[in-house]
Design a protein around this nucleic acid. Structure first.
Length: 756
RNA sequence: GGGCGUUUAGCUCAGUUGGUAGAGCAACUCGUUUACACCGAGAAGGUCGGGGGUUCAAGUCCCUCAACGCCCACCA
């Protein structure tokens, strides 16, 4: 009687009970007919996800009950034009498990979805398409048209990635969806730039950048791929009576040399330090000063380094330290400038290399030519060899002292003087950002110690255009044009600039929104270790500066998902696994479990499809346990607790003990342990032992014992569903929907079954 | 070159503060009297990469070597 549906029900043609609610037919035994077949995720998951969305519970404002403590996570925004790969699936599953657990624990949970414009990648892709389909370059289209086309493309592809994220079961608040290029984020980016500019932390400076001559843009260090190539190391003297021979693989740059650097303790050259020599090299008059610099390696080549300030990072730095002149001899098209002298001016740098080498030989100055293996920096996108060039760029100064008006970060007082670097270090050192994995703390600090100013300008068109205006010598930082005669800076911002604001730009900053008040700092962030320097540290920088807060309280860095042989997934290897295919084949719950169980956070995951298959079986196991329990409790008085037998009381305690353990694992973000324990319990304790032991009891004459066991089975099942829900949200919710007695209409907002 | 990892059963991985090695999958044996064959019962399988050290005791701590991997730098 107790299990008859309470809502509108009627009897079908053949006398079967038909339950109209949720369209589920019931069998004669009183349980929904769907339980007679194996669990079918494809028939279930989309419906369940729609049910969650309709409930509004993804939005913290709609969550039932009084929730005082907030718990916030922002989704690391995938590229708007991207497709979900297995790494996303892992990251999403991980975060969703945490988020669902916290929601069940009664917190005001917000998980913010979003996408990233990935400026360079997206523009490059669209440019390529246009080139292919219309034979036009971006210059043919013009800036405005290209930006329009790229934005359109981004908007059109957005749905792919978003629907894929949903397939995994991510319980994101879609009403707060953000895109790094939308209006609200645009405002935040502009505001952030202007504030930092006004604080003197953003400056324009001529510095050596990685110039991509093919893409005609600066690229960041992170977009460089080093390739090993064979090169010739030439050893020679600039002219006959020059006292020191130098070695180089790029003789063409030597017409731009202004110094020779030696190690201060190198006895061979000590006598020359500080002296200046003039002469002519390849038709160019040079003045070479001998300087002592500790960065010179005594053992390499002749132990003397020809310093070409304008075309090498290290040489630029040496020039900085010794106040040397800088002569640019190569231009943006990798051709020699007029300053390179009549011999090579106008020719390609690679050709000039041979010309100059020949000149050296012809003049009897060459001492040695040897083949060496060399690492050449190439552009990830275009494959072009990087030409280090001095260019006017925008920079974030990480070492400049400034007064921070407000700070909640321990060790940084409001109104005190600090630097961005110090903020980044202190935020983690003080524990305000908890980074529980020791090895990533080490990596982080190592990175901070070697941190240089951050180049934030990019010479592309798609992105946030720098809000700087020029009128003759006048410069003005503001969003809109100050008026006639003012021209805006051509460059756009590094995509990581906007990503770095993500934890608070998504919450409405620079407005003082209640979201910002309630949900920032965020609670938890779990990025891949790849982007620790790229993203994590820069979020800490931005949040500390603009809000005086850390961006997140805990960061758990996870590893990469690799293939079975430990190789990175990549298109060129053709070893990619589409998580959406996996979901179709095994169900999202199985994919989530396959990724989470037994993979310690921080280590790489060598992905094994067999594992996913195993968890598909597990979902079915849970399904059948439910069937068994429902069938055997259909006529039981389980609405209220009967007097329990000792044995049954013990079973409850046993599960409770497990839950204490699992809860503690959750609190430590050790999902790989929690999930494994629950799996083991459901399969090998609940199913294999308890259910089997119950069979004689359920068929027996001892009514009290039977009722006690029926009640217990039902409770153990419903508790297991709750505990498994963060990992396997779909199947648990689907079963929950068929339970005759439940505390809440939806499992996702039911209370977590253990309180410490 | 600097830094950080990984190496445990055939495969994929756990192993929290040192106390006689664990799981899943695969393989093997037996079992199909309805919760589930997307199953059950059972057995097998490891000198914890090599070597050395600390300790009553080491997969765990220290040193060293090797293989593999990642990050940073770019030797000009």
């Amino acid at each position: 009687m107790y299990l008859k549906p309470q809502n509108s029900s009627t009897y079908g043609y053949n006398g079967r009970l038909v339950l109209l609610f949720a369209g589920m037919q019931r069998t004669d035994s009183g349980i929904p007919e769907k339980f007679l077949k194996p669990y079918d995720p494809t028939a279930t998951e989309d419906t369940i996800y729609a049910l969650w969305e309709q409930s509004g519970y993804f939005n913290p404002d709609n969550l039932p009950g009084e929730r005082n403590e907030s718990f916030t996570v922002v989704l690391p925004p995938p590229n708007v034009t991207g497709v979900l790969h297995i790494g996303h699936a892992y990251e999403d599953a991980l975060q969703d498990a945490v988020v669902r657990y916290q929601r069940m624990c009664g917190k005001k949970v917000l998980w913010v979805p979003g996408t990233d414009s990935a400026a360079i990648a997206t523009q490059a892709r669209v440019e390529k398409n246009i080139q292919k389909e219309e034979g036009k370059s971006r210059h043919d289209l013009g800036r405005e048209e290209l930006v329009r086309r790229v934005s359109e493309f981004a908007k059109n592809s957005e749905n792919t990635i978003l629907s894929q994220v949903k397939k995994i079961g991510a319980s994101l608040d879609w009403s707060r969806y953000a895109y790094t290029m939308d209006d609200a984020r645009y405002r935040a980016v502009m505001e952030a730039f202007i504030r930092m500019y006004e604080a003197g932390l953003i400056y324009r400076g001529n510095r050596i950048v990685n110039w991509d001559p093919k893409g005609q843009t600066t690229i960041s260090d992170d977009e460089i791929v080093h390739e090993e190539r064979e090169a010739v190391l030439y050893t020679f003297k600039y002219w006959k009576d020059f006292p020191i021979a130098i070695s180089t693989t790029r003789p063409e740059t030597k017409v731009g040399d202004t110094a020779v650097a030696v190690h201060p303790e190198d006895e061979r050259y000590r006598e020359y330090i500080g002296k200046e020599f003039t002469g002519e090299f390849a038709g160019v008059p040079l003045t070479i000063r001998i300087v002592a610099d500790e960065h010179v390696e005594k053992e390499f080549g002749t132990g003397a380094l020809g310093v070409t300030p304008a075309h090498s990072m290290t040489d630029w730095d040496i020039a900085e330290r010794h106040d040397l002149p800088r002569i640019q001899v190569i231009n943006e098209y990798a051709k020699m400038t007029d300053a390179a002298g009549p011999l090579v001016a106008g020719s390609k740098a690679v050709e000039a290399r041979e010309t100059i080498a020949a000149w050296i030989r012809d003049n009897g100055l060459m001492e040695k030519e040897e083949k060496v293996a060399q690492n050449v920096a190439t552009a990830e996108r275009t494959g072009a060899i990087i030409e280090p060039l001095p260019k006017l760029q925008w920079w974030v100064d990480v070492n400049k002292p400034f007064t921070i008006p407000y700070s909640e970060i321990p060790g940084i007082a409001s109104g005190s003087e600090t630097t961005l670097k110090a903020l980044m270090r202190t935020a983690v050192e003080s524990g305000a950002v908890a980074m529980p994995q020791e090895r990533f703390r080490k990596t982080y600090f190592h990175w901070i110690d070697n941190l240089r100013d951050w180049c934030i300008s990019r010479q592309i068109w798609f992105g946030h255009r720098i809000p700087i205006w020029y009128n003759g010598d006048e410069i003005c930082a503001q969003i809109d044009s100050p008026g006639d005669g003012w021209v805006q800076d051509e460059d756009v911002l590094d995509t990581w600039f906007s990503s770095a604001l993500w934890t608070f730009s998504t919450l409405g900053w620079p407005e003082k929104t209640s979201d910002l008040e309630t949900f920032h700092p965020t609670s938890f962030m779990s990025p891949a270790y790849e982007i620790l320097p790229l993203w994590v540290s820069r979020m800490i920088l931005m949040s500390s500066f603009h809000l005086g807060q850390v961006p997140f309280k805990t960061v758990m860095i996870h590893g990469l998902v690799r293939d079975k042989q430990g190789r990175k997934f990549s298109k060129s290897l053709g070893n990619g696994i589409d998580p959406i295919d996996l979901v179709a084949q095994y169900g999202a719950d199985a994919v989530r479990m396959g990724l989470l169980v037994g993979t310690a956070i921080g280590n790489d995951v060598n992905f094994d499809e067999q594992k996913v298959k195993g968890y598909k079986h597990f979902a079915n196991k849970l399904w059948n346990v439910s069937r068994f329990v429902l069938e055997n409790t259909v006529d039981a008085p389980i609405a209220e607790a009967p007097t329990l037998t000792n044995e049954d009381a013990e079973l409850s305690v046993q599960l409770d003990t497990l839950l204490a353990d699992v809860t503690s694992d959750f609190e430590k973000y050790q999902l790989y342990l929690a999930s494994e324990k629950l799996y083991h319990y459901v399969w090998h304790t609940l199913a294999d032992k308890i259910l089997e032991d119950s069979k004689p009891l359920l068929a027996g004459d001892d009514t009290a014992a039977r009722v006690s066991r029926q009640y217990t089975l039902y409770t153990l099942l419903s508790t297991s569903l709750k505990a498994l829900h963060p990992f396997m949200p779909f199947v648990t919710e689907e079963i929950w929907q068929s339970l005759p007695h439940k505390e809440t209409d939806m499992l996702m907002v039911t209370q977590w079954p253990y309180t410490a």
